[in-house]
Structures are given as C-alpha cells and as structure tokens.
Nucleic acid binder design. Sequence first.
DNA 1: TTTGAAAACTCTCGCGC
DNA 2: GCGCGAGAGTTTTCAAA
Lengths: 154, 154
Amino acid sequence: MQTELDPTDIELLKLLQIDATLTNKELAFKLNKSIATVHERIRKLKDQGYIKRVVAILDRKKINKSLIAFSQVLLKEHTADTLYAFEHEVAKFSEVMECFQMTGAFDFILRIATSDMDTYHLFLRNKLATLPNISTVQSFFVLSETKSETAYPL
Amino acid sequence: MQTELDPTDIELLKLLQIDATLTNKELAFKLNKSIATVHERIRKLKDQGYIKRVVAILDRKKINKSLIAFSQVLLKEHTADTLYAFEHEVAKFSEVMECFQMTGAFDFILRIATSDMDTYHLFLRNKLATLPNISTVQSFFVLSETKSETAYPL
DNA sequence: TTTGAAAACTCTCGCGC
DNA sequence: GCGCGAGAGTTTTCAAA
C-alpha cells in the first residue's frame, strides 16, 4: 500500500480541507487531471485514512452553543486505571467536545460547549464534579474567537 | 426569512455534522421526506448560515502534525489597539489553528499544530515571541487525544 | 412539499502510456 | 503502475402543481 503523498494528493487535501463540496469535475479542472484520476485519488486518501471524515461545520451561536469553556482538570491519583476511568466517563458527556491529556501542571483540558453560564454551571456541578478522583477544575471562558481553522497547512 | 429550526432541520444538521457525504437520497430515506425537500432544506440551512462550510477532516498524525500545543498568552497592555494588533498578527501564522481571547489569568489561548517539539520551539522563538507587547507565553502539550468532536449536540 | 424529467455528476472498466 | 475516456448508473436540479 502506497502511503506517500505526491503533489497532486497534497493539492487535493488542501482543497478538500477548505471545501469538501467541490465536485470531482471542479477538482479535476483545478488540478489539470481527469475526473477519473481525481476520483481514484480521493478514494485512496480515504482508504488510507488521510481523510478521516467529511463533516458540516455549524455556526455554534446559531444553535445555542454560545459559551465555550476550557476546563483544566487535575486528578488526585494518576494510576493507569484512574486515568482511563476519567477519560472514559468524561467522553460520555455531550457537552464535552474535546478532551486532551496534557503535560504540565494539570492532567486534562476539556473544551465544553453550552448555551450559557447557567448551563455550564449545571454541567460542572451535576456532571463533571461528580466524577470520582477529581482534585481541581479551573474554568476559562472564551470571550471571542479570533481564528478557528480546521484545515492544517500542507 | 424563516430562522427557526423544525425537527427535520435538526435531524438533518445532526446527520450532516457526522457525515456530510450522505446523498440527498440517503437523507430523504432516513427522514421519510422527498429528495427535493431534503435538497431545499439543506440549501436554506446553508443560506441562513447554520451550515458554515463542509470540510474534510484529516488525520493530523499522517500529515506530520503530531504535536499540538495549547499556549496561554499574557499581554503587557490591554488597549483596544494592542488586543486587535495581537489577534491580527497571530492569525497570520499558519501554525496557529485557533486563537481565543479568554477570561481569567491570561489573555489568549492558542492551539498550535506542528510536527514536533523542535518545530514548536522554532515557532515560539522566531514567530510568536517576536510579536510586540507579549508579557508571557505558557505552553502545554497534548499527550493524548481522548475525545475530539466537531458535531455539537442538537 | 411533491413529482417527474432533464442536466449534471459519479463511478467503473478497460485500454494505453 | 498510473492516468484517461466513455458510458451506465446515480444524484441533483428545477419546473409546475
């Protein structure tokens, strides 16, 4: 299985990261390739896992997710079991968009999406803070989103 | 312009957030609507800005973006001008995937994608730290990505 | 919102480089 | 191996009701 990207693959990935609604015909024109070639390249890029999925990105403010919080979590214990248990439980909460284990002074950083501060408060009290083994949770709130990019440079 | 979402719109947004390659025919079947209805609903959801864009999500480790850092930036001054200038300059760096102005003990949090620690270091020294008006930058690194969701609950 | 038909696009296959 | 052309099969689009 060929796993290196050539310039055509790179160009395709660049374009599809920005707008995945481009048709094969449009892509073929931009790349000076045939439609069949573009089709085959994209199939391979998906098969090989370069393209994980194609998704619609919504305007969060329009769907009542106006408040984004970053919550830094410190656990009491750091055994393999307690780390796994935390990750496993926290992933179940629909408010948690992302969970990363981190280096540094705390263990995890969570990105939480809610409609407002009251809802965040309820999430913290009734969901996050009820998990066992939590030592501290520090919350920071997004005032404004200056840059928000899903496309990696290639 | 109708701006409220009915249950069909909500269901469509849920599905398209997960997989935007579903055809109108497949969506119509899932929702028990006609293809033309689905087509028209999606057109409206895009027009009204609920769907901002449709993008391919890549596997960052396969495209040499193995290291993700969250960098907390504190500025020296907080005039409207200096805040704007920082946002404006930092958005130009291709390594910066996201930039948020925050409440709390620091001013901005950046999500930085690079290939490795050396590259991050170079970014910090030669790009970020050269911006005027920066007081401190604290960097935290992602050890593992437990949950990573682009779909908001609806 | 639906229908239905025309236009556009997708996807596969086999040939040629 | 990789790319391309052509055609069958789907999907999208757009009237009209």
